[in-house]
Design a protein around this nucleic acid. Sequence first.
DNA 1: CAAGATAGTACGAACTTCGTAATGTTCAAG
DNA 2: CTTGAACATTACGAAGTTCGTACTATCTTG
Lengths: 144, 144
Amino acid sequence: MTEPTPQQIEQLTRAFERFTRKFKVAEAAAAADNALNALDAQTLVFVGDNPGCLIGDVARYLNVAMTTMSSAIDRLVKKALVERRRPEDNRRSVALTATEKGKQVVEEQVAGYRAACQMMLRSLDPIERNELIRLTEKIADNET
Amino acid sequence: MTEPTPQQIEQLTRAFERFTRKFKVAEAAAAADNALNALDAQTLVFVGDNPGCLIGDVARYLNVAMTTMSSAIDRLVKKALVERRRPEDNRRSVALTATEKGKQVVEEQVAGYRAACQMMLRSLDPIERNELIRLTEKIADNET
DNA sequence: CAAGATAGTACGAACTTCGTAATGTTCAAG
DNA sequence: CTTGAACATTACGAAGTTCGTACTATCTTG
């Protein structure tokens, strides 16, 4: 397989910069009232998708120190979005689950992502939409 | 023009999540030694691209408080990456320029973006590459 | 059962962000 | 001109975040 040309790389770099900026602004507008910082929001979404996960799991996934994750969980527990539980089979660990309220907030978060994706697709005509989805999947799932 | 279908939106949302995570990890690995936080890095790139810009310009562009931007500039000046200058025509303002060292760091930052874009393109075959570029540009430049 | 490995938490230092107040500059009236 | 309002930025301090070190509690293994 050939390499992408420098021109292609440069073109995509520039386009992707505008692309990213566009959706960063949109996201900032949506998250204005949210009151969750980036780490807490990502943590909550992960816990929502992985009920029973451990604090260490989330820390590894999000690439932060254990103590940082412990603090993030503290904040989410204080807001009643997440619950800590000592599992009987390994009482050193702490299993996390999202509360009902937490699940709602996860849904709002995901709705934000969905809105951004909808905005992307709206810019394209129907054939291009499927093409974009296909290419995004191909890039995301490529091993290397 | 029709709306994207809910299936399409859902599919892109999921794919884009994997896509984003993949490049976040790559970026984190690249920026490990960098020692610039996200705001400072974005600020430096903007100043590099817009020599003579004012602190207020950068603050508005990156959507942070003036005082926050002032602190970020402080850090960049201390690292000798950026210079403050009082322009004669409006001595209230502060014109910013990247130093030689700063320009080098900007180049490294951009090289990081370029590497990520190259990685995306590598996953595709030659025809798809141009298609991805075209679609990204179309989305980024769409008014709405 | 002792020693080491695991999983988390408490604490404190360093850093960031941002609101308020202060400083120096420019501009528009009068 | 002077005066007062608007402007661009900085100084300062409060609140919050991240993370390293040290500590607690709980398995696991020989």
